[in-house]
Structures are given as C-alpha cells and as structure tokens.
Design a binder for these strands. Structure first.
Lengths: 209, 209
DNA sequence: TGACATACTTAACGTCGTTAAGTTAACACC
DNA sequence: GGTGTTAACTTAACGACGTTAAGTATGTCA
C-alpha cells in the first residue's frame, strides 16, 4: 500500500516547492513582491493551484516564517564556542543576531517586522519561543555565575528583553529609516557592540529603577 | 485681488480636510485601512478628487507623517521641566517617547515603522532631524556636564542612537509580536525605565568596546 | 459674451487575493 | 475491464485596490 504514501510525498514536495519559491522571491525581490501570481509563475502553476496546498497567502507566509525562524534559532544556538562563559555567550548571541539581520534583511523583516496572525499549527511549532528561551537561559546562566549584578536575579526577563529590544531596535530603525533622512546613522556593526557593552555594564551594576 | 488668495485658501482647506480624514482613518481603523476610496467616502468626494490635491497616496501619507512628526517633536521638546539637568532630561525624553508610542500607536507605526520614499518637500521639512537633534543635544549636554563618562565625549551619536534604538526596539517588538507567541513580554512601562537606567549606567562607565 | 482655467465626476485599466466551476487523470471496486 | 470517485489542477471571474483618461460644470477674466 505504497500509493497513499507516494501521494503524500508528492504533495509534500509540491508544498515545499511553493515554500522555496516564496523564499526565493522574498530574498531576491523583497517582501512585497511575494504575490500569488508571481509565485505561481515561478513554479509554473496557475495562481489558484497554490490554494490546494495552503489555505491562503497568510498561512503560506506563516509557514515560511516558521522555517526561517528555525534557521535563525540554529544560527543563534551555534554562535558561541562551547567553552565560553555566559557573559561571552551573550555577546556572541548579540553578534549572531546582528549578523543574521544584516545577511538576511528580507528574512529578518519577515520574521520580526511583519505582523501576522498565527495559525494554531504555527503556534504549536513555536520557534520564536525557542530563540527567546536560548537568550533567557544565557541571561539566567550569567546571573547564576555572578556575571551580572545580583539585584537582577529576580528579573531575568527584564534583562533578556532589554537586550533583545536594543538589538532589534538598531536593526529595525536602519531598515525603516529612509536614507534621505539626514540623520548620520552610525553603522550597525559599530553601534551594536557599543549598545551591548553599555547594557552589560549597566546590568553589572545594582538595579537603579 | 483677493480672488486668487481666496482660491488658494479654499484649496489649502480641502487639502487639510483630506489630511485630517486620513489621520482619523489612521487612528480609528489602523494603517492599512487608509484607502483612497475610504478616504474619499469620508470627505464625501469621489476617490479621484484626491488626486487634484496630492500626486499619489504615498505623497499624501508622507505629508501626513510630516505633520505628525512635528507633533511628536513638540511632545519631546516639552517633556522636561526647565530646571532639569541633562541626565534627567534624557530620562524625560525617553519617557515622552514611550508615552507617545503607547498613546498613539498608529501614528508611531506610521512614523517609525513604515518605509517611505521621501519627496523633496518632505525632505526639506525634515522634522525627524529636529527630534534627533533634540536627543543629540541632550546627550551632548550630559557629556559636557560630566554626567556621562568622558570616554564617550567623541561619540555622542553612538550614545544617542543606542538610546533611540533601545526605546524604538521595545516599542516596535511589542507592536509586531503577535500576542499568541508565548513569550511573556514585560510591560513596556516596566521595561522602558529598566533599559534607560541600564544604558545610562553603562554610559557613566568607561567605554569598553 | 466667449475663451479658459480649475475643481470635480464617471468610467475604466491593471493588479491584487480569493472563490467557483470545470477538466483531467489516477486510483478503487464490482 | 469498464465505472465511479477522489484530488490536483486550470480557467473564469469577483470585489477591492491605486491610478489614469476623459468628460462636466463653475467661476474668472478679456
């Protein structure tokens, strides 16, 4: 009874074909060039064929984001040498975060700068949670090792989300700000370490607020 | 020769009518509900009448953003008591920034989270530059007053853009992240002071990076 | 009075996401 | 081995979008 299985395999392959085409379109032409018609043309199907495999465009893009989130999380997870102490690991995480954003701006935009209502399946896969857990765990480890000030011990989420927000803010501002605005933006690769070190220094001191 | 003037006045009034309707639409229904047709219906004109006053939708929205940027800048400028020292003024600026974002999320999204190619006129008005100049000036004053560490004296832009990015990141992440993502986001009003104090503490110490 | 400019309308084009109806081919069964 | 069913796909079309072209009317000026 291999027929049913082969059919499922074929269907999954077509699904993947569509997802890959969508990512190609995203990377090559940018987010708003992802069009059901452009997608269809790329895979040489009619536009409505996609609806056999995905409920609608949003579901498709959500599924794509789940894949890309996985890749993002793996990059973060592999960014630190195994012998690094927690504080260094935080620095490596920050560096990997910024690097991902600079190397894959379209994907970053899709993952972190685009609103999307999650399907239940996408919610179940929860890759953003995994990436955040990685950051939170590293913060926790730094706290446990006494590498951050003990007054933050009860608020690891505050520390983690401050770090995350700062990294995201630097990336997002640079992606959104039109170059014509005459603010002399410091290059990301210069600013990111500055922000990271300033925050680490801040969190090594007693909590003020 | 008051006729010409009256005509210009009338035309300017219609322009303003359209802009006000656009802002109402933005605030009430959200950014993507701003439609030439919805806009036209609201002012009881035909959709194409708008094109008499604006070259296209993007020009219209850019002009709207210039107005809102002005309001934003004024809120920032008036946020500090006159006798506050530079460091306190930085805190007030941060507070006003966050407050604006929370009270006017749609405007914030429009100003800071939407890409737009600027017209030359919009570029000439340059309100974002004014807001940034306000921040930069306050950072500079704090440096001059010795309220931040002297090792940052040559890099006021780094300090200013780190602060700005962090505030923006906190706001933007919370606006983009769907609530269904199971990351327990710290409330903005709690997190923002934490980030601000951590950064200030960091910038009161010698530069590490 | 007649030419002209200008604020507007109606009609329409091409694009988008999406739905409905039809086609076709492979499988399942008597 | 013909027949019915299922499921992947296509074509046609809908409504909404931004925008353009062509027409209308009103008010100004010579």
């Amino acid at each position: 009874m291999g027929i049913k299985e082969r059919r499922e395999r074929d269907k999954a392959a077509t699904r993947q074909l569509i997802l890959d085409a969508a990512r190609d379109l995203l990377v090559e032409d940018g987010y708003d060039k992802i069009t059901m018609r452009a997608l269809a043309e790329r895979i040489e199907y009619s536009p409505t064929a996609i609806y056999v495999h995905f409920a609608d465009k949003d579901t498709l893009l959500t599924e794509l984001s789940v894949c890309d989130f996985l890749e993002f999380t793996q990059k973060l997870a592999g960014s630190s040498p195994p012998d690094a102490n927690p504080l260094s690991r935080l620095r490596f995480l920050g560096g990997a975060y910024i690097r991902f954003a600079m190397e894959h701006p379209s994907q970053y935009r899709h993952l972190f700068m685009t609103e999307r209502e999650l399907t239940e399946e996408a919610q179940a896969a929860k890759p953003p949670e995994d990436a955040y857990a990685l950051l939170l765990g590293t913060v926790q480890a730094a706290l446990d090792a006494g590498e951050l000030h003990e007054s933050w011990a009860d608020h690891p989420h505050h520390v983690a989300q401050t770090l995350w927000s700062s990294m995201h803010g630097m990336v997002a501002l640079r992606m959104t700000m039109p170059e014509k605005v005459a603010v002399p933006m410091v290059p990301l690769e210069d600013l990111a370490p500055v922000a990271m070190e300033a925050l680490i220094t801040g969190f090594r001191q007693p909590r003020q607020s």
